[in-house]
Every structure is written in structure tokens, then in C-alpha cells.
């Protein structure tokens, strides 16, 4: 059978069922906003006994812990199914990516299994975050020399 790849792909894409973007966006907004409100609440709580900087750090650590725990007990993916980017974009998504990769690799041992695979998604985030930061740092350094 002769099939023109370009037109077939166009045809298949056109008839493919689309993601319910509006519904997904509303869910992402509500879940994402809710997580940020919790973060704000935690921050206000922690600031009663910590400096603002330490409180902010502890908020991140708390959210990371909760997301890792929910991932471990198998609940995170069920929430994320509805929340979409609402749980992905906050720091919870980073934590889930790390914890789920670690859990996934458990069967292959703790060194080359968990130890290596834990970076599957965390790796690129750290790599490009640090690289972008370094590029910015060099530019900033040059600017400080000029001024």
C-alpha cells in the first residue's frame, strides 16, 4: 500500500482526539494555586521562629518531603492525573520526578539502579539551571567590571 507520510500524518493529527485544554488549565490553575497558598501559609508559620530566608528554604524542603512521601505511597500520580501542570510546575513536580525515578529503579539495585536513575529528570534540571546561571554570572561579572 502506498501512503504519503506527510499527508497521512496531517490526517491522523487532524482526527486525533484533542486534550481537553480548557479543563486541564482550570485544574492546573486551581491545584497549582492551592499548592502556592499552602507554601505561603507554611512560610508565614515558619517566619514566626525563623528568618525569612531560612523560612523560605524550609518551605521548599517541606513541600519536597510531602511530594516524595505522596509519591512513595502511590498517591501523587493519582492527584497529578487531574492536576497536570498544577503539580508539575511547583517544586512538588521536581520532587516527584526524583522520587518516582528512584522508586522505579529499586529493582536494579541501589548503586546503578536508584543511584544513577534518580537523576533521570533531576539531572537535566540541575545541569541546565546551573549552566544558565553560570552564563548569567559571567555576563554579570563583566558588567560589574565595566561599571
Amino acid at each position: 500500500m502506498q501512503i504519503d507520510k506527510k499527508s497521512y500524518r496531517k490526517y491522523a493529527d487532524a482526527r486525533a482526539q484533542k486534550s481537553p485544554c480548557a479543563k486541564n488549565c482550570i485544574n492546573a490553575f486551581l491545584y497549582g494555586g492551592f499548592i502556592c497558598v499552602i507554601a505561603q501559609g507554611l512560610k508565614d508559620l515558619y517566619m514566626t521562629f525563623l528568618t525569612e530566608k531560612d523560612a523560605a528554604t524550609l518551605v521548599s524542603v517541606t513541600l519536597i518531603f510531602l511530594a516524595a512521601l505522596l509519591t512513595g505511597i502511590g498517591v501523587f500520580d493519582r492527584i497529578a492525573k487531574h492536576a497536570g501542570a498544577g503539580t508539575l510546575v511547583p517544586i512538588t513536580g521536581f520532587s516527584n520526578a526524583v522520587a518516582s525515578s528512584a522508586l522505579d529503579a529499586k529493582g536494579e539495585g541501589f548503586v546503578l539502579g536508584v543511584g544513577a536513575k534518580i537523576f533521570t529528570i533531576a539531572g537535566p534540571v540541575i545541569l541546565y539551571g546551573i549552566t544558565a546561571g553560570a552564563i548569567y554570572g559571567v555576563i554579570y561579572y563583566i558588567i560589574t567590571l565595566i561599571i
Binding site: A16, S19, I79, A80, K81, L103
Partner: peptide
Amino acid sequence: PLEYGGQRAPT
């Protein structure tokens, strides 16, 4: 990974 929180495409 099984516990990764993602959404499946309708297709």
C-alpha cells in the same frame, strides 16, 4: 516511572 505524575494523551 509508575509513580511519575503525568497526564496521558487522549490518543
